[in-house]
Simulated assay, not measured.
Amino acid sequence: MTLSQKLLPGVPLVESMLFSASLDQMGLSNSQRDVAIQLHEKGFAVFDFPDEDLAARIERIKADLTPQYDFDRWRAEGWAANDGLRVQDAWRTHEDVRAIAANEAVLDLLSKLYGRRAFPFQTLNFPVGTQQHVHSDSIHFSSVPERFMCGVWLALEDIHEDAGPLVYYPGSHKWPILYNDAIGKVAGTETAEFAQPPFEQAWRALIDATGTKPEYFRPKKGQALIWAANLLHGGSRQNDPARTRWSQVTHYYFDDCAYYTPAFSDPLAGNLDLRDIVDVTTGKLAPNTYVDRPIAEVPKRGAAVPAPVTADRWANLFPGKAPKDFDPQRYLDLNPDVAASGADPRKHYVRHGAREQRRYK
């Protein structure tokens, strides 16, 4: 056990103020040590993805997922609107996507870096750049204790500078995480916008105030990048819509945490969007845990613990977000990746589908 794990068990090793004092106790190889130092200091680290079969997996992924993307429509409408293309949670139906997400060497590395067992919970497969505004993942999927989440971005081809490479701001992972209260937002009443847009002005102001300069990731096929939960990152403008930018993103959580969506939560107002997280490696739900026991077993003191936002309550919290003619079953039929993920169709459309211009009729 490292010094940080002994004294600050609720802080990821690689994000701990006791990182330097614990580094020699983390059981890292020389190459892993370099990754740990980069991640601690900059909020990201680059490495070669450890899979002898990666080239063959990439070709199978491209061949199998290509029919699910409407490239013509994207180049005619989505590119100019800064919208991307993606398939979410293809790990459920595609073994190669799952194998990349559950790569044992990567899981071992992440577990050492964070001090808890890592497990993948979401995959995103992209054929082109996302052009997504810079953001912190911590508003989309966070944990208690916080920062026990990270992402791994894998290049499935050489990435050209005109294909909208990944952009990130070194060191921004050390900034305070912005939650709804920090920007004066209440999730239950803010219906004009959702999730990320309300935070974007604040992030831009922080970048300007600190003078932090962006860096761009132009990797070769098979290179990967780990980023910390609060690192500001996004997709830069794609200058050439004819180019592809094939990639796979895998998001990871860690054992013994509670998993929730801060952008849709007001915990002190009784609104907690607690997540039902599936561990990709086991196919089973990961228990939401507070310190050392499942949340359902945590002793109550005083007022009852706020209940999660259920599907029945969702419409009341976000009225009018889905079109009047929205048909949940039709949406699932038209978007098989959403159906395979088990997501609530209305919630998915509100959070993702509208921005992605997904069909619902």
Rank of each mutant, 00 (worst) to 15 (best):
A315N: 09
H251L: 03
E95N: 12
Y179G: 10
R237I: 11
D48V: 03
A155L: 13
T93D: 15
P299N: 06
H251R: 02
Y168M: 15
T250D: 07
T93R: 14
T310M: 06
L225S: 07
L85C: 11
G222V: 00
D72N: 04
Q38P: 00
R313H: 09
A102N: 14
R359N: 13
K221E: 10
Q131L: 03
R92S: 05
P287A: 11
F264D: 08
Y331E: 12
A76M: 03
K347Y: 08
D96E: 15
S111T: 12
Y259M: 11
A205I: 03
P219M: 08
V106F: 03
T2W: 01
W175G: 02
L3I: 05
G43V: 05
K42F: 06
T130S: 15
P299I: 04
V350N: 15
V298K: 08
R346E: 15
Q88T: 08
D292R: 09
A182N: 13
L154R: 07
L124N: 08
I159N: 04
T289H: 07
H233D: 00
L332K: 13
F254G: 10
R57N: 06
Y69T: 02
A105Q: 15
E77R: 14
F119L: 10
G235A: 06
Y253R: 05
V11H: 09
D70I: 03
P9V: 00
P165A: 07
H94T: 10
A182T: 12
L225I: 11
R117H: 06
F217L: 12
Y349M: 11
V291T: 06
I139P: 04
E41F: 05
D72E: 15
S16K: 06
Y260Q: 06
D273S: 15
T210M: 03
A99K: 07
L156K: 01
D344N: 15
Y168H: 11
S111K: 12
D292E: 10
A340I: 02
D96L: 04
L274S: 09
